[in-house]
Amino acid sequence: MPHTLDPLPQDNADEIFCCYVNSTSQIQIARITNVHNWYFERVVFPGQRLIFEAPNYGYLEIHTGMMASSILSDKIPCQQLIVLGEDEPHPFAMPTANNGLEYAHQ
């Protein structure tokens, strides 16, 4: 994915593709603030899907609010937002006794 705005710092080898969906009826601001030397902030409209690349240790903060104020309404580990292909196993899934998958971050 080409980075024209806000490229990740060069030292982030463990990058993952993520997806967040704004399932509310309010405009939200999505931010990642825990990555040194990187600024990520996007407006996410109601029903909009945000696809982005982030370090696997990143946390997506969701800020919801009205015109002049906002409230931190959620903080989601980017590992929980990973986008996978049809054939790809979840990288944080662990096999269980019944051959199903149990996710490490639920």
Rank of each mutant, 00 (worst) to 15 (best):
T4L: 07
T4P: 13
T4Q: 12
T4A: 13
L5E: 14
L5F: 15
L5H: 08
L5M: 12
L5K: 12
D6K: 12
P7R: 12
P7G: 08
P7E: 08
P7I: 09
L8M: 09
L8I: 09
P9D: 03
Q10W: 03
Q10E: 15
D11N: 13
D11W: 10
N12V: 11
A13R: 06
A13I: 06
E15M: 07
E15Y: 10
E15R: 11
E15W: 13
I16L: 07
I16H: 00
I16M: 14
F17W: 12
F17M: 06
F17C: 00
C18I: 10
C19W: 05
Y20A: 12
Y20M: 08
Y20E: 05
V21G: 11
V21R: 11
V21W: 05
N22Y: 00
N22T: 08
N22E: 02
N22F: 08
S23E: 08
S23K: 12
S25F: 10
S25Q: 14
Q26R: 13
Q26K: 13
I27Q: 11
I27M: 06
I27G: 07
I29M: 14
A30I: 02
R31M: 15
I32P: 04
I32T: 10
I32C: 01
T33N: 08
T33I: 07
N34D: 07
V35S: 05
V35R: 15
W38F: 14
W38Q: 07
Y39W: 15
Y39L: 14
F40L: 07
E41T: 04
R42H: 07
V43D: 06
V43S: 08
V43T: 15
V44T: 02
V44N: 03
V44Y: 00
F45V: 05
P46A: 05
P46I: 06
Q48Y: 10
Q48A: 12
Q48F: 04
R49I: 13
R49D: 02
R49P: 03
L50H: 06
F52P: 01
F52T: 00
F52L: 04
E53D: 02
E53G: 02
E53L: 05
E53Y: 05
A54P: 02
A54Q: 04
A54M: 05
A54C: 05
P55R: 03
P55E: 08
N56D: 15
N56T: 09
N56G: 02
Y57I: 01
G58C: 05
Y59I: 12
L60R: 13
E61M: 01
E61W: 04
I62Y: 09
H63F: 11
H63D: 10
H63S: 13
H63R: 15
T64L: 04
T64Y: 09
G65V: 00
G65N: 01
M66I: 04
M67K: 08
M67T: 06
S69R: 14
S69L: 05
S69P: 02
I71H: 15
I71W: 08
S73F: 13
D74S: 10
K75E: 06
I76D: 05
I76Y: 01
P77W: 09
P77H: 02
C78V: 15
Q79H: 00
Q80L: 06
Q80Y: 01
L81W: 09
L81S: 04
I82C: 06
I82Y: 08
V83A: 14
L84C: 07
L84W: 04
L84N: 01
G85F: 02
G85Y: 01
G85I: 01
G85P: 05
E86C: 10
D87P: 01
E88A: 05
E88F: 00
E88K: 03
